[in-house]
Design a protein around this nucleic acid. Sequence first.
DNA 1: CCTTATGTTCAACGTTTATTGAACTATCGA
DNA 2: TCGATAGTTCAATAAACGTTGAACATAAGG
Lengths: 123, 123
Amino acid sequence: MSRTPLHPTREQIELPTVLDCLSDPIRLAIVYQLARQERVSSELCCSDFYALSGKSNLAYHFAKLRECGLMQTRVAGTNRFMRLRREDLDARFPGLLDAVLKSAARDAERLELIDTCDVVEAD
Amino acid sequence: MSRTPLHPTREQIELPTVLDCLSDPIRLAIVYQLARQERVSSELCCSDFYALSGKSNLAYHFAKLRECGLMQTRVAGTNRFMRLRREDLDARFPGLLDAVLKSAARDAERLELIDTCDVVEAD
DNA sequence: CCTTATGTTCAACGTTTATTGAACTATCGA
DNA sequence: TCGATAGTTCAATAAACGTTGAACATAAGG
C-alpha cells in the first residue's frame, strides 16, 4: 500500500489492452463515473465505487485500469484519488474515449450505469 | 456447415461484447481488413485471412464476431462471405467503429495489420 | 498508543478464453 | 462418381480472467 502505482507512458498505451479493459462492465462503469466527475472534481476515490463491487474486487479492476493507461492514481494519506488519463488517451486514440463514453451513455440503463453526480446536462 | 449462422438484431448488439470482440488482436485485424475492403467489394471470405491464423482458429473468431454483431456471414456454395455490419454499428454506437478503426490504422505496424488491398489512399 | 478507516495483496476457486489438430460436412469441377 | 476445396465442429490443453474473503499495510484521529 506504500508505493505509488506504476503507470504506462502515453506511448506505451495499447489499443487492444484499452478495449479489453473497457469491455468489462464494472471497469466501464468506473470509467464512466470518472468521466462524469471530470467536470466537477476530476478525482474520485475507491469508496466512491462501492456500489459497483467489493473493495478487493475494485482494487483488482483499478489495477487493470492503471496498467492499461486508462486512469491514474494519486496517493494522499489513506486515500487513492483516481482520474481519467484523458489527455493521453485523446492524444493516442483521438475520439475513441468519447465514442465509448457516448455509447455507454446511450445504454446507461442497460449497462446499469449510475450518475455519481446529480447534475443533469444536455448533450 | 449447412445452416446460415445466426446474427443478433441491431438492438441486441451490446457495447461490452463489441469492445471485447475488438480487443483481440486477430479479431481486430479481421475487422480492419473488412473495413479496408468495404470500398472495393465489401465482402471477404475465410481464405482471405489465412495470413492471420489457421482455418479452425479463424472459424472460432468469425463466430465471435458474428455473435457480437460486428459482422455478417452470407453462405454461397462452399464459401462464406463476410462483411462488416457497419450500418447497424453506426446506428447503435455512432462514431465508435470509426474511432477504433482510425486508432488501429495509426498503430498499423505495431498491431501488425496488413492491407488486403494494395490501394493506398490519404486520410 | 490504540483504534478506525482506506485500500492493497494474497491464495483459492471456478469460469472463460485462445489455440491446436483431427474429424467432419458440403459443394464444386473434372 | 471421385477427388479437391472451403469451412465448421469437436475435444483437449494451457493460460488468463473475475470474484471472494482473509490478512496485511498505512495513515489519521482520539
